[in-house]
Amino acid sequence: MKNVTGHLPSVARVALGGIFVYAAVLKISDPVAFAGSIAAYQILPYFASYLAAAILPFLELICGLLLICNYRVRGAAVIVGVLNLVFMAALASAIVRGLDIDCGCFKQGGAKTSPWLAMARDAVFLAMTVVVIKGRNRQEEAVLVSLPIREQ
């Protein structure tokens, strides 16, 4: 059991990275449709929808790759966490306003994903982010504690 929990942060890190890279690639391949998905939330003005559609997927891509490669993990994980919070806030506002829109999370167009389902999914991703960051903190503490012993 200890083995399983010990590996949990690494598993969460790679899985989260993979999900974000997957989401990013789908969006990068069709920025116009993604801009449409963002515009459908009716939160951002016209040009800002395009700007967000241009930048957001690359942010997801870079963070996903960093998570997978185990490089600069804390920065990437914090961004992923913040992105998830932003996504959830946007979805919540869509639910409150009764907008009948696709979440635009992964594949653009096609079958609609309900905002509630997307919310639940983002909550899971957020929990995974917390696991990754906590695991990282614990790892660093362990390194700090073990250092003086090695130096002796």
Binding site: I55, L61, I62, L66, G75, A76, I79
Partner: peptide, 14 residues
């Protein structure tokens, strides 16, 4: 790290 990642994403995306 966060600042660098966001900056690179913005440059790449734009």
């Amino acid at each position: 790290e966060i600042a660098a990642i966001v900056l690179i994403a913005a440059v790449l995306g734009i």
